[in-house]
């Protein structure tokens, strides 16, 4: 059965049963054995992905702020605490490229520094509901994707991190003018807790869609998912 039909069937059932009959369910507590509520909520989450993709306007910019609005000290956040930050060796580091890309030669830090740079003061909104303002500088992802001959008609850009984290975003958001491969934070090179040596900075999405300490970038039509998405967060998570 096709995915769309499957989804419709689930939705129909969800409506028929009514929300109350599934109340004790969904918490995504056992991903191998999703119960009925888990599956209905996943179907709704996929529907919300589509709604958000339709709502996304490539020309709408995230707000920018004056330097005086920057949050100090900056707030660290990861799926582990600051003492366990993975420290990357910048000298040997390189960004691997995979998938639908013409020039897959890995990029080193110096190559990225030599590329055109942009800097912006934007807001990072966490899925938890707090927000911080920071300044990030680096290479616009759209420029980078064109430079490496990526298939910009593909659906996803996928990211892998030094600490095992992984994420993916839709191509229109990847090509948004404010989406950066960030090298700098608050006017200086990124520090390990904030994603040294390279992170994604995308102010049109929630914080967890901004993976840190990247080691590989790919372009693909096969849904790559993400660390938090696998546990139940909405994938598109646009702002």
């Amino acid at each position: 059965m096709s995915d769309a039909l499957d989804r419709r069937r689930l939705l129909g059932r969800a409506l028929a049963f009514g929300a109350l009959s599934v109340l004790p369910g969904c918490n995504y507590d056992n991903l191998q054995h999703p119960d009925f509520a888990d599956r209905a909520l996943r179907a709704m989450s996929r529907w919300n992905d589509r709604v958000q993709a339709a709502l996304f306007d490539p020309h709408t910019l995230a707000p920018t702020f004056p330097a005086s609005a920057i949050t100090r000290p900056p707030r660290f956040n990861a799926f582990y605490d600051e003492a366990h930050v993975h420290v990357v060796d910048g000298a040997s580091w390189q960004l691997e490229l995979f998938g639908n890309i013409a020039e897959k030669r890995p990029w080193r830090l110096a190559d990225l520094r030599a590329a055109p740079q942009e800097s912006q003061i934007t807001r990072l909104i966490c899925v938890e509901g707090w927000r911080v303002i920071g300044q990030w500088g680096g290479v616009p992802l759209g420029w980078f994707l064109r430079r490496i001959g990526a298939d910009t008609k593909a659906r996803y850009v996928s990211f892998r991190c030094a600490d095992g984290y992984y994420e993916s975003i839709d191509m229109p958001s990847a090509l948004h003018p404010q989406t950066l491969l960030a090298l700098d934070f608050l006017g200086k090179p990124l520090t390990p807790p904030f994603g040294y040596p390279l992170r994604l900075r995308i102010p049109t999405k929630l914080g967890f869609k901004n993976p840190k300490s990247l080691v590989a970038l790919g372009v693909t039509n096969v849904f790559p998912g993400g660390y938090w998405v696998a546990q139940g967060y909405n994938w598109f998570s646009g702002s």
């Binding site: 929300a19 109340l23 969904c26 918490n27 995504y28 507590d29 209905a40 909520l41 996943r42 709704m44 989450s45 919300n48 899925v127 938890e128 938090w228 546990q231 139940g232 967060y233 909405n234």
Partner: peptide, 19 residues
């Protein structure tokens, strides 16, 4: 509360919002 953790709660909230 409903959802047990943030991810579950958001899933409920953004599904029931359509209803």
């Amino acid at each position: 509360t409903l959802g047990e953790w943030l991810g579950g709660a958001i899933a409920w909230h953004l599904a029931a919002m359509w209803l």
